[in-house]
């Protein structure tokens, strides 16, 4: 078999005249860049010379009560009220973003892509999951703020007595149950790792349960139970159905968290009605 050897044309650098060349950075960008540099340098020098007249507004010891993030982050702040800080602020958002990014890899069905409510029971699933997410999130918030126990006690005179005190809120599970002493100090690592003053050799099981265990069980367990029970009644058929359930419940929960953090959290992050919400500037003596 003969192999044809085709000589490639030798490329030679083409000479161009100056007029043919086009700058990769247009002139305007250069001008803007120089302006930005001048502005930055001026601001830098100015900040050396002149102090911003913030005075008491920049006093970290004066904290408004309640202290709130911008409204679009109040869902995260609301989560922070109920669980471990790293979990609520970093781990859960990251995991959820990864899960949402994985949706198209889990639901590989081509048929009906991009169609709103594209499966047979989609509308029903959306409504049911949104209602469950809405009610479930409110229930958990009310429980953890002690309001359910408070209402039962105040409205109906019901009291669990000493045996049910641990149900008042999530933290009571740790503080009101007679946990044996060993369970508060379970050694699980042969060496002690201390990160920012935190001891990672011993597990305080009741604290772990309250700050991480119960919230994880609530979030993963309730989502799984919702999908499972809707599958048992035959409404969830395809993977897309399961994702519709998961996402609708998430949107409802996210909305409730944002709403609660924005309009229902008063001083000391106490759960109040929106018309009772007053903000104190936190100036000493004027609270």
């Amino acid at each position: 078999m003969a192999t044809a050897v085709v000589a490639r044309p030798v490329s030679r650098t083409q000479t161009r005249s100056r007029e043919e060349e086009v700058l990769v950075w247009p002139d305007l960008v250069f001008i803007e860049f120089i302006a930005a540099m001048l502005f930055t340098i001026t601001l830098f020098l100015l900040s050396f010379l002149v102090n911003a007249p913030l005075l008491d507004q920049a006093n970290a010891d004066v904290t408004p009560n309640p202290s709130k993030a911008p409204w679009y982050l109040l869902n995260l702040q609301e989560l922070l009220l109920h669980m471990n800080a790293a979990m609520a602020g970093v781990i859960i958002p990251t995991i959820w973003l990864v899960i949402m990014g994985a949706f198209p890899y889990f639901d590989r069905e081509q048929h009906g892509q991009g169609v709103w409510f594209g499966t047979e029971k989609a509308v029903r699933l959306t409504i049911v999951s949104a209602v469950v997410g809405f009610v479930g999130t409110w229930f958990l918030i009310l429980w953890d703020s002690g309001k359910i126990a408070f209402f039962l006690h105040g409205w109906f005179g019901l009291s669990g007595g000493d045996s049910l005190r641990f149900l008042e809120n999530v933290r009571s599970v740790q503080t009101q149950l007679p946990w044996p002493e060993w369970s508060r100090n379970i050694t699980y690592s042969p060496v002690n790792i201390v990160i920012i003053g935190e001891d990672f050799q011993h597990l305080d099981f009741p604290a772990w349960l309250v700050e991480q265990g119960i919230p994880t069980m609530a979030m993963v367990g309730m989502s799984a139970m919702l999908i499972f029970s809707l599958w048992r009644v035959g409404w969830v058929v395809t993977r897309r159905d399961a994702l519709i359930v998961l996402f609708s419940a998430f949107v409802a929960a996210y909305g409730v968290l944002t709403l609660t953090g924005t309009a229902f959290r008063g001083q000391g992050q106490e759960l109040v009605f929106p018309w009772e919400l007053k903000v104190s500037e936190g100036i000493p003596g004027q609270e």
């Binding site: 904290t63 309640p66 702040q77 922070l80 000391g268 992050q269």
Partner: peptide, 9 residues
């Protein structure tokens, strides 16, 4: 004592 940020009491 009630924290204004996350309600720890």
């Amino acid at each position: 004592f009630r924290c204004p940020c996350h309600g720890s009491t």
